[in-house]
Nucleic acid binder design. Structure first.
Lengths: 208, 208
DNA sequence: CGGGCGATTGATTGCCTTCAAACGTGGTGG
DNA sequence: CCACCACGTTTGAAGGCAATCAATCGCCCG
Protein backbone atom coordinates (compact mmCIF):
# COMPACT_ATOMS: atom_id res chain seq x y z
CA UNK A 1 0.00 0.00 0.00
CA UNK A 2 1.30 3.45 -0.85
CA UNK A 3 1.35 5.91 1.98
CA UNK A 4 2.61 9.40 2.62
CA UNK A 5 5.52 10.25 4.84
CA UNK A 6 5.55 13.78 6.19
CA UNK A 7 8.94 15.33 6.84
CA UNK A 8 7.59 18.72 7.74
CA UNK A 9 4.24 20.43 7.25
CA UNK A 10 3.65 20.43 3.51
CA UNK A 11 6.66 18.28 2.67
CA UNK A 12 5.53 14.79 1.83
CA UNK A 13 6.84 11.75 0.04
CA UNK A 14 5.18 8.63 -1.17
CA UNK A 15 6.38 5.46 0.48
CA UNK A 16 5.54 1.83 1.15
CA UNK A 17 3.82 0.80 4.36
CA UNK A 18 5.40 -2.07 6.18
CA UNK A 19 4.61 -4.00 9.33
CA UNK A 20 7.12 -4.96 12.03
CA UNK A 21 6.31 -7.28 14.87
CA UNK A 22 7.27 -6.76 18.51
CA UNK A 23 11.08 -6.84 18.91
CA UNK A 24 11.66 -7.18 15.19
CA UNK A 25 14.70 -5.34 13.86
CA UNK A 26 13.98 -2.48 11.50
CA UNK A 27 17.59 -1.75 10.70
CA UNK A 28 20.95 -2.39 12.33
CA UNK A 29 23.99 -0.29 13.09
CA UNK A 30 26.47 -0.36 10.22
CA UNK A 31 23.86 -1.56 7.77
CA UNK A 32 23.37 0.47 4.63
CA UNK A 33 20.96 3.32 5.23
CA UNK A 34 18.78 2.67 2.24
CA UNK A 35 15.49 3.82 3.71
CA UNK A 36 14.10 6.47 5.97
CA UNK A 37 11.06 5.57 8.04
CA UNK A 38 8.08 7.29 9.53
CA UNK A 39 6.21 5.60 12.37
CA UNK A 40 2.55 5.18 11.38
CA UNK A 41 1.46 3.15 14.38
CA UNK A 42 3.09 1.44 17.35
CA UNK A 43 6.46 2.50 18.72
CA UNK A 44 10.12 2.14 17.82
CA UNK A 45 13.30 2.21 19.88
CA UNK A 46 16.69 3.30 18.56
CA UNK A 47 19.82 2.13 20.32
CA UNK A 48 23.53 1.52 20.42
CA UNK A 49 25.63 -1.13 22.11
CA UNK A 50 28.92 -1.06 23.98
CA UNK A 51 31.70 -3.39 22.89
CA UNK A 52 30.66 -5.87 25.58
CA UNK A 53 27.00 -5.82 24.69
CA UNK A 54 25.40 -3.39 27.08
CA UNK A 55 22.48 -1.64 25.43
CA UNK A 56 21.72 2.05 25.52
CA UNK A 57 18.39 3.10 24.11
CA UNK A 58 18.75 6.54 22.58
CA UNK A 59 15.15 7.30 21.90
CA UNK A 60 11.58 6.10 21.57
CA UNK A 61 9.70 7.00 18.44
CA UNK A 62 5.95 7.36 18.28
CA UNK A 63 3.50 7.76 15.42
CA UNK A 64 4.51 10.70 13.27
CA UNK A 65 8.19 10.49 14.19
CA UNK A 66 10.92 10.02 11.61
CA UNK A 67 13.42 7.21 12.19
CA UNK A 68 16.61 6.25 10.42
CA UNK A 69 17.49 9.57 8.86
CA UNK A 70 21.23 9.49 8.26
CA UNK A 71 23.76 11.52 6.36
CA UNK A 72 26.30 8.87 5.70
CA UNK A 73 25.70 5.71 3.77
CA UNK A 74 25.27 3.55 6.87
CA UNK A 75 23.10 3.65 9.95
CA UNK A 76 24.87 4.87 13.08
CA UNK A 77 22.38 3.15 15.36
CA UNK A 78 19.92 0.31 15.22
CA UNK A 79 16.14 0.31 15.47
CA UNK A 80 13.56 -2.22 16.60
CA UNK A 81 9.81 -2.28 16.99
CA UNK A 82 8.85 -1.92 20.65
CA UNK A 83 5.37 -3.14 19.87
CA UNK A 84 3.90 -4.32 16.60
CA UNK A 85 4.18 -1.25 14.42
CA UNK A 86 3.53 0.01 10.97
CA UNK A 87 6.17 2.12 9.29
CA UNK A 88 6.17 4.00 6.04
CA UNK A 89 9.49 3.80 4.24
CA UNK A 90 11.02 6.07 1.63
CA UNK A 91 14.22 5.47 -0.30
CA UNK A 92 17.14 7.59 0.84
CA UNK A 93 17.98 8.33 -2.79
CA UNK A 94 14.58 9.93 -3.30
CA UNK A 95 15.06 12.15 -0.29
CA UNK A 96 18.61 13.08 -1.25
CA UNK A 97 17.57 14.00 -4.74
CA UNK A 98 14.71 16.13 -3.47
CA UNK A 99 16.98 17.86 -0.97
CA UNK A 100 19.53 18.63 -3.67
CA UNK A 101 16.86 20.29 -5.77
CA UNK A 102 14.86 22.07 -3.13
CA UNK A 103 16.22 24.41 -0.51
CA UNK A 104 13.01 24.01 1.46
CA UNK A 105 13.44 20.26 1.72
CA UNK A 106 17.11 20.55 2.58
CA UNK A 107 16.10 23.01 5.29
CA UNK A 108 13.52 20.57 6.64
CA UNK A 109 16.16 17.87 6.95
CA UNK A 110 18.41 20.25 8.82
CA UNK A 111 15.59 21.28 11.14
CA UNK A 112 14.79 17.66 11.87
CA UNK A 113 18.41 16.82 12.62
CA UNK A 114 18.77 19.85 14.85
CA UNK A 115 15.67 18.91 16.78
CA UNK A 116 17.02 15.41 17.28
CA UNK A 117 20.31 16.89 18.46
CA UNK A 118 18.50 18.97 21.02
CA UNK A 119 16.74 15.88 22.32
CA UNK A 120 20.00 13.96 22.53
CA UNK A 121 21.50 16.77 24.59
CA UNK A 122 18.56 16.83 26.94
CA UNK A 123 18.95 13.08 27.28
CA UNK A 124 22.64 13.48 28.14
CA UNK A 125 21.61 16.02 30.77
CA UNK A 126 19.25 13.52 32.37
CA UNK A 127 21.78 10.69 32.27
CA UNK A 128 24.63 12.76 33.60
CA UNK A 129 23.04 14.76 36.34
CA UNK A 130 19.83 13.24 37.62
CA UNK A 131 18.98 10.61 40.20
CA UNK A 132 16.76 7.61 39.56
CA UNK A 133 13.32 9.01 40.39
CA UNK A 134 14.15 12.27 38.66
CA UNK A 135 14.97 10.33 35.53
CA UNK A 136 11.75 8.38 35.61
CA UNK A 137 9.67 11.49 36.29
CA UNK A 138 11.36 13.28 33.39
CA UNK A 139 10.71 10.30 31.19
CA UNK A 140 7.02 10.16 32.05
CA UNK A 141 6.48 13.85 31.54
CA UNK A 142 8.28 13.77 28.22
CA UNK A 143 6.28 10.83 27.04
CA UNK A 144 2.98 12.32 28.17
CA UNK A 145 3.68 15.46 26.18
CA UNK A 146 4.03 13.40 23.04
CA UNK A 147 0.95 11.31 23.66
CA UNK A 148 -2.55 12.28 22.62
CA UNK A 149 -4.24 10.66 25.60
CA UNK A 150 -2.83 12.84 28.35
CA UNK A 151 -3.15 12.40 31.37
CA UNK A 152 -3.55 8.69 30.67
CA UNK A 153 -0.36 7.28 29.28
CA UNK A 154 -0.09 3.84 27.76
CA UNK A 155 3.49 2.66 27.89
CA UNK A 156 4.37 0.70 24.79
CA UNK A 157 7.71 -0.33 26.29
CA UNK A 158 8.79 -2.65 29.07
CA UNK A 159 10.59 -1.69 32.28
CA UNK A 160 13.73 -3.09 30.71
CA UNK A 161 13.39 -0.66 27.80
CA UNK A 162 12.83 2.24 30.16
CA UNK A 163 15.84 1.17 32.19
CA UNK A 164 18.07 0.95 29.16
CA UNK A 165 16.89 4.39 28.11
CA UNK A 166 17.45 5.98 31.50
CA UNK A 167 20.64 4.18 32.47
CA UNK A 168 18.92 2.28 35.28
CA UNK A 169 18.01 -1.32 36.05
CA UNK A 170 14.54 -2.79 35.72
CA UNK A 171 14.23 -2.98 39.48
CA UNK A 172 15.12 0.66 40.04
CA UNK A 173 12.61 1.77 37.43
CA UNK A 174 9.95 -0.38 39.04
CA UNK A 175 10.75 1.00 42.48
CA UNK A 176 10.56 4.56 41.18
CA UNK A 177 7.12 3.89 39.72
CA UNK A 178 5.99 2.40 43.01
CA UNK A 179 7.35 5.38 44.94
CA UNK A 180 5.54 7.80 42.67
CA UNK A 181 2.34 5.86 43.18
CA UNK A 182 2.80 5.93 46.95
CA UNK A 183 3.28 9.70 46.74
CA UNK A 184 0.05 9.94 44.73
CA UNK A 185 1.83 11.49 41.76
CA UNK A 186 0.61 8.72 39.50
CA UNK A 187 -1.72 5.74 39.53
CA UNK A 188 -0.84 2.37 38.03
CA UNK A 189 -4.02 0.47 37.09
CA UNK A 190 -1.71 -1.90 35.26
CA UNK A 191 2.03 -1.93 34.75
CA UNK A 192 1.74 -0.47 31.26
CA UNK A 193 -0.95 2.07 32.04
CA UNK A 194 -0.02 5.22 33.92
CA UNK A 195 -2.44 7.87 35.08
CA UNK A 196 -0.87 11.21 35.84
CA UNK A 197 -2.55 12.20 39.06
CA UNK A 198 -0.47 15.24 39.87
CA UNK A 199 1.56 16.71 37.10
CA UNK A 200 2.88 19.24 39.59
CA UNK A 201 4.28 16.52 41.81
CA UNK A 202 6.00 14.99 38.81
CA UNK A 203 7.48 18.30 37.76
CA UNK A 204 8.82 18.65 41.26
CA UNK A 205 10.28 15.15 41.24
CA UNK A 206 11.86 15.83 37.88
CA UNK A 207 13.84 18.80 39.17
CA UNK A 208 14.63 17.66 42.69
CA UNK B 1 41.53 41.61 12.82
CA UNK B 2 39.78 39.75 10.02
CA UNK B 3 40.12 36.01 10.04
CA UNK B 4 38.69 33.07 8.17
CA UNK B 5 36.30 30.55 9.64
CA UNK B 6 36.21 27.19 7.91
CA UNK B 7 32.93 25.32 7.97
CA UNK B 8 34.12 22.51 5.75
CA UNK B 9 37.07 22.06 3.43
CA UNK B 10 36.78 24.87 0.93
CA UNK B 11 33.90 26.63 2.62
CA UNK B 12 35.14 29.70 4.39
CA UNK B 13 33.76 32.91 5.78
CA UNK B 14 35.41 36.08 6.90
CA UNK B 15 34.95 36.87 10.56
CA UNK B 16 36.27 38.91 13.45
CA UNK B 17 38.77 37.44 15.87
CA UNK B 18 37.93 37.85 19.53
CA UNK B 19 39.61 36.92 22.76
CA UNK B 20 37.89 35.31 25.76
CA UNK B 21 39.57 34.86 29.11
CA UNK B 22 39.41 31.74 31.26
CA UNK B 23 35.82 31.10 32.43
CA UNK B 24 34.46 34.01 30.43
CA UNK B 25 31.03 33.45 28.94
CA UNK B 26 30.89 33.34 25.16
CA UNK B 27 27.14 33.07 24.92
CA UNK B 28 24.33 31.97 27.21
CA UNK B 29 21.34 29.70 26.85
CA UNK B 30 18.28 31.61 25.61
CA UNK B 31 20.39 34.45 24.34
CA UNK B 32 19.93 35.45 20.73
CA UNK B 33 22.11 33.34 18.48
CA UNK B 34 23.62 36.18 16.54
CA UNK B 35 27.01 34.67 15.88
CA UNK B 36 28.61 31.36 15.07
CA UNK B 37 32.13 30.76 16.38
CA UNK B 38 35.18 28.83 15.38
CA UNK B 39 37.80 28.07 18.03
CA UNK B 40 41.16 29.43 16.87
CA UNK B 41 43.11 28.72 20.05
CA UNK B 42 42.37 27.52 23.55
CA UNK B 43 39.33 25.46 24.43
CA UNK B 44 35.62 25.99 24.96
CA UNK B 45 32.98 24.12 26.94
CA UNK B 46 29.28 24.01 26.06
CA UNK B 47 26.78 23.19 28.77
CA UNK B 48 23.27 23.14 30.11
CA UNK B 49 21.89 23.48 33.62
CA UNK B 50 19.10 21.72 35.51
CA UNK B 51 16.40 23.81 37.14
CA UNK B 52 18.27 23.60 40.45
CA UNK B 53 21.61 24.61 39.03
CA UNK B 54 23.48 21.37 38.39
CA UNK B 55 25.75 21.70 35.41
CA UNK B 56 26.12 19.23 32.58
CA UNK B 57 28.93 19.88 30.15
CA UNK B 58 27.88 18.66 26.72
CA UNK B 59 31.14 19.03 24.91
CA UNK B 60 34.64 20.44 24.79
CA UNK B 61 35.67 22.31 21.67
CA UNK B 62 39.23 22.55 20.46
CA UNK B 63 40.91 24.65 17.78
CA UNK B 64 39.13 24.14 14.48
CA UNK B 65 35.79 23.23 16.06
CA UNK B 66 32.63 25.18 15.36
CA UNK B 67 30.63 26.38 18.37
CA UNK B 68 27.21 27.98 18.65
CA UNK B 69 25.68 26.82 15.42
CA UNK B 70 21.93 26.94 15.96
CA UNK B 71 18.85 26.70 13.83
CA UNK B 72 16.49 28.70 15.94
CA UNK B 73 16.95 32.30 16.88
CA UNK B 74 18.29 31.54 20.34
CA UNK B 75 21.09 29.43 21.75
CA UNK B 76 19.96 26.14 23.26
CA UNK B 77 23.06 25.88 25.41
CA UNK B 78 25.72 28.14 26.84
CA UNK B 79 29.43 28.33 26.13
CA UNK B 80 32.44 29.47 28.15
CA UNK B 81 36.15 29.60 27.59
CA UNK B 82 37.89 26.76 29.45
CA UNK B 83 41.22 28.52 29.04
CA UNK B 84 42.03 31.86 27.48
CA UNK B 85 40.92 31.36 23.92
CA UNK B 86 40.64 33.11 20.62
CA UNK B 87 37.49 32.66 18.60
CA UNK B 88 36.56 33.80 15.13
CA UNK B 89 32.95 34.91 14.88
CA UNK B 90 30.65 35.14 11.89
CA UNK B 91 27.18 36.61 11.83
CA UNK B 92 24.38 34.06 11.65
CA UNK B 93 22.68 36.14 8.99
CA UNK B 94 25.69 35.78 6.71
CA UNK B 95 25.68 32.02 7.11
CA UNK B 96 21.93 31.74 6.63
CA UNK B 97 22.06 33.80 3.48
CA UNK B 98 24.90 31.72 2.08
CA UNK B 99 23.09 28.50 2.93
CA UNK B 100 19.93 29.68 1.21
CA UNK B 101 21.88 30.42 -1.95
CA UNK B 102 24.25 27.48 -2.03
CA UNK B 103 23.29 23.85 -1.75
CA UNK B 104 26.89 23.01 -0.92
CA UNK B 105 26.92 25.29 2.08
CA UNK B 106 23.52 24.09 3.26
CA UNK B 107 24.84 20.56 2.96
CA UNK B 108 27.92 21.45 5.03
CA UNK B 109 25.72 22.80 7.82
CA UNK B 110 23.71 19.58 7.78
CA UNK B 111 26.86 17.48 7.88
CA UNK B 112 28.17 19.44 10.82
CA UNK B 113 24.92 19.12 12.73
CA UNK B 114 24.76 15.39 12.03
CA UNK B 115 28.30 14.92 13.24
CA UNK B 116 27.46 16.77 16.44
CA UNK B 117 24.40 14.59 16.85
CA UNK B 118 26.51 11.48 16.56
CA UNK B 119 28.84 12.77 19.26
CA UNK B 120 25.92 13.59 21.54
CA UNK B 121 24.65 10.04 21.13
CA UNK B 122 28.02 8.57 21.93
CA UNK B 123 28.10 10.80 24.98
CA UNK B 124 24.68 9.54 26.08
CA UNK B 125 26.00 6.02 25.67
CA UNK B 126 28.91 6.75 28.00
CA UNK B 127 26.73 8.48 30.59
CA UNK B 128 24.06 5.81 30.56
CA UNK B 129 26.02 2.62 30.48
CA UNK B 130 29.58 3.02 31.68
CA UNK B 131 31.24 3.00 35.09
CA UNK B 132 33.56 5.69 36.39
CA UNK B 133 36.92 4.51 35.11
CA UNK B 134 35.41 3.47 31.79
CA UNK B 135 34.10 7.00 31.40
CA UNK B 136 37.43 8.59 32.17
CA UNK B 137 39.28 6.21 29.84
CA UNK B 138 36.82 6.96 27.04
CA UNK B 139 37.25 10.65 27.68
CA UNK B 140 41.03 10.48 27.51
CA UNK B 141 41.07 8.43 24.34
CA UNK B 142 38.57 10.72 22.68
CA UNK B 143 40.54 13.79 23.64
CA UNK B 144 43.85 12.29 22.52
CA UNK B 145 42.39 11.57 19.10
CA UNK B 146 41.55 15.21 18.68
CA UNK B 147 44.89 16.48 19.92
CA UNK B 148 47.92 16.95 17.75
CA UNK B 149 50.42 16.02 20.44
CA UNK B 150 49.49 12.39 20.90
CA UNK B 151 50.49 10.51 23.11
CA UNK B 152 51.08 13.56 25.29
CA UNK B 153 47.82 15.22 26.17
CA UNK B 154 47.56 18.61 27.78
CA UNK B 155 44.24 18.92 29.52
CA UNK B 156 42.89 22.42 29.16
CA UNK B 157 40.12 21.68 31.64
CA UNK B 158 39.93 21.09 35.39
CA UNK B 159 38.85 17.92 37.15
CA UNK B 160 35.57 19.68 37.87
CA UNK B 161 35.00 20.22 34.15
CA UNK B 162 35.77 16.59 33.40
CA UNK B 163 33.42 15.52 36.18
CA UNK B 164 30.59 17.68 34.88
CA UNK B 165 31.16 16.26 31.42
CA UNK B 166 31.21 12.63 32.57
CA UNK B 167 28.53 12.82 35.22
CA UNK B 168 31.03 12.21 38.03
CA UNK B 169 32.45 14.14 40.97
CA UNK B 170 35.89 15.73 41.08
CA UNK B 171 37.04 13.09 43.55
CA UNK B 172 35.95 10.18 41.43
CA UNK B 173 37.68 11.61 38.36
CA UNK B 174 40.84 12.13 40.38
CA UNK B 175 40.73 8.59 41.75
CA UNK B 176 40.25 7.19 38.26
CA UNK B 177 43.31 9.06 37.06
CA UNK B 178 45.31 7.76 39.99
CA UNK B 179 44.13 4.21 39.33
CA UNK B 180 45.13 4.43 35.70
CA UNK B 181 48.52 5.70 36.74
CA UNK B 182 48.92 2.82 39.20
CA UNK B 183 48.04 0.41 36.39
CA UNK B 184 50.69 2.06 34.20
CA UNK B 185 48.13 3.00 31.56
CA UNK B 186 49.07 6.65 31.86
CA UNK B 187 51.64 8.86 33.56
CA UNK B 188 50.76 12.12 35.26
CA UNK B 189 53.82 14.43 35.36
CA UNK B 190 51.41 17.14 36.43
CA UNK B 191 47.68 17.15 36.97
CA UNK B 192 47.01 18.76 33.60
CA UNK B 193 49.53 16.76 31.63
CA UNK B 194 48.75 13.15 30.74
CA UNK B 195 51.11 10.77 28.99
CA UNK B 196 49.45 7.80 27.37
CA UNK B 197 51.70 4.95 28.31
CA UNK B 198 49.56 2.09 27.10
CA UNK B 199 46.83 2.93 24.69
CA UNK B 200 45.85 -0.73 24.74
CA UNK B 201 45.28 -0.68 28.47
CA UNK B 202 43.09 2.38 28.06
CA UNK B 203 41.07 0.79 25.29
CA UNK B 204 40.53 -2.18 27.59
CA UNK B 205 39.49 0.05 30.46
CA UNK B 206 37.11 1.89 28.21
CA UNK B 207 35.17 -1.22 27.28
CA UNK B 208 35.33 -3.16 30.53
C1' DC C 1 57.20 33.74 51.51
C1' DG C 2 52.35 33.52 52.09
C1' DG C 3 47.78 32.81 50.25
C1' DG C 4 44.41 30.49 47.63
C1' DC C 5 42.72 27.30 44.56
C1' DG C 6 42.78 22.87 42.43
C1' DA C 7 43.96 18.11 43.14
C1' DT C 8 44.67 14.08 45.82
C1' DT C 9 43.71 10.88 49.38
C1' DG C 10 41.11 8.87 53.23
C1' DA C 11 36.78 7.62 55.81
C1' DT C 12 32.06 7.14 55.70
C1' DT C 13 27.52 7.34 53.78
C1' DG C 14 23.95 6.40 50.66
C1' DC C 15 21.91 5.20 46.40
C1' DC C 16 21.51 2.06 42.97
C1' DT C 17 22.70 -2.59 41.59
C1' DT C 18 22.71 -7.32 42.22
C1' DC C 19 20.79 -11.44 43.81
C1' DA C 20 16.66 -13.75 45.04
C1' DA C 21 11.92 -14.85 45.51
C1' DA C 22 7.08 -14.12 44.82
C1' DC C 23 3.39 -12.11 42.23
C1' DG C 24 0.29 -11.20 38.30
C1' DT C 25 -1.23 -11.56 33.83
C1' DG C 26 -1.79 -12.81 29.26
C1' DG C 27 -1.50 -16.61 26.19
C1' DT C 28 -1.78 -21.42 25.03
C1' DG C 29 -2.96 -26.08 25.03
C1' DG C 30 -5.55 -29.61 27.12
C1' DC D 1 -13.48 -23.06 29.47
C1' DC D 2 -10.16 -23.63 32.61
C1' DA D 3 -5.54 -24.77 34.10
C1' DC D 4 -1.04 -23.99 33.55
C1' DC D 5 3.03 -21.90 31.98
C1' DA D 6 6.10 -18.20 30.76
C1' DC D 7 7.46 -13.78 31.06
C1' DG D 8 7.33 -9.27 32.87
C1' DT D 9 6.89 -6.89 37.12
C1' DT D 10 7.17 -6.12 41.92
C1' DT D 11 9.27 -6.47 46.33
C1' DG D 12 12.86 -7.75 49.68
C1' DA D 13 17.71 -8.28 51.35
C1' DA D 14 22.50 -7.64 50.73
C1' DG D 15 26.44 -5.78 48.47
C1' DG D 16 29.22 -2.44 45.83
C1' DC D 17 30.41 1.69 43.63
C1' DA D 18 30.43 6.43 43.49
C1' DA D 19 29.07 10.56 46.35
C1' DT D 20 29.85 13.10 50.29
C1' DC D 21 32.46 14.84 54.02
C1' DA D 22 36.93 16.04 55.52
C1' DA D 23 41.83 16.83 55.65
C1' DT D 24 46.21 17.41 53.37
C1' DC D 25 49.00 18.31 49.56
C1' DG D 26 51.08 20.95 45.85
C1' DC D 27 51.43 24.53 42.86
C1' DC D 28 50.84 28.85 40.67
C1' DC D 29 50.61 33.86 41.64
C1' DG D 30 50.82 37.55 43.95
Amino acid sequence: AQEMITLAPGIEFRGARMRFERNEEIFGEDEGAEYVYRVASGAVRTMRFTADGRRQILGFHLPGDIVGLELGQVHTLSAEAVASSELVMVRRSVLDKAAAESTTIARALLTLTAKTLDQAREHAMVLGRKGASERVATFLLGLADRMPSNPDVDLPMSRADIGDYLGLTIETVSRSFSDMERQRAIALPSSRHVVMRSRMALVQLQAA
